[in-house]
Design a protein around this nucleic acid. Structure first.
Length: 264
DNA sequence: ATTGAGACCTGTCGGC
DNA sequence: TGCCGACAGGTCTCAA
């Protein structure tokens, strides 16, 4: 949706309506964007990347509540709900005539500018693990990343260096589909005698399946969320013939949901 | 170095 | 009806 109005267009004006989001904006943020053409728009993990003609890359994280609103010039800001304009933090006016507004009530989002050629050195970007739906991610990569890890499977999957892009909800979902307990040490699925264990196979496959389903669902007309375990404490497990009851525990300050019967 | 807990922020929800 | 505290999420910082 942003691609048609941003790629090959340039920033004619950038309005920054507060000093920061989750973090301060980079120095001279607006002036470094203004006049630059967007060469390409891509995604890496939970980040949106806009490659600029200057060689810099605009890095955007939507956090929890961030989103872009697209308007076609003329109709001024805040058209519609006057209430939400309160959280319009950044406005991009593009040469295509589009006005792209970043709105984020909780301000967990962030924006940064990565200089030309510095991506690999970026403290976050440079250390991200493989994309879960890519060829580069599978049982082998997962088992390898878990080797020697003393932490839990839950924490390991949440670690963006192990696999990039999983959040709290889909970690619970994937572990349930794979039949693995969240508290189980990550090292128990690690590579053993040169080969990944069966558990790593199941978990890698489960991650791919859960994400694919989530994407399909987002694109389908009925947007019914139907989680396997997330937010289903005290409700029956949906695994065929299981009969277990979903439990909720806290790990690393985050809720984890699992079935004590079919997850080992 | 690795790991875990706390902080950040605000809309929503349950309880009184 | 209205108020208030608890809670949710993804990093990042700090400390063990």
């Amino acid at each position: 949706m942003l691609e048609p109005v941003m790629v090959h267009a340039l920033f004619t004006r950038v309005l920054i309506r507060r000093p920061d989001l989750r973090r301060p904006f980079p120095p001279r943020f607006g002036s470094r964007l203004t006049g630059q053409t967007v060469v390409a728009l891509t995604r890496r993990a939970k980040y949106l990347l806009a490659e600029l003609s200057s060689g810099d890359t605009l890095l955007v994280h939507l956090g929890m509540s961030g989103w872009f609103r697209l308007e076609r010039g003329t109709d001024g800001p805040g058209a519609g709900a006057p209430d939400s304009a309160r959280h319009d933090h950044v406005v991009f006016e593009m040469s295509s005539g589009a006005v792209v507004t970043f709105n984020d009530p909780r301000r967990f989002g962030s924006m940064d500018l990565v200089p030309r050629g510095q991506q690999a050195a970026h403290p976050v970007l440079g250390r991200l693990g493989p994309e879960p739906l890519s060829e580069g991610f599978g049982a082998e990569a997962l088992a390898g990343a878990c080797t020697g890890k003393r932490t839990s499977l839950k924490a390991a999957l949440l670690d963006q260096r192990v696999v990039a892009g999983l959040g709290n909800i889909y970690v619970s979902e994937a572990l349930h589909l794979a039949g693995l307990l969240p508290r189980r040490p990550a090292s128990t699925i690690a590579t053993s005698s040169g080969k990944p264990r069966p558990a790593a196979d199941r978990l890698a496959a489960a991650i791919k399946r859960v994400l694919t389903l989530a994407i399909d669902r987002k694109e389908s007309p009925d947007r019914v969320r139907r989680f396997r375990v997330y937010d289903r404490a005290m409700q029956p497990c949906r695994t065929r013939g299981c009969g277990g009851t979903i439990r909720r525990v806290t790990q690393a300050g985050r809720s984890t949901f699992y079935c004590p019967v079919c997850q080992r």
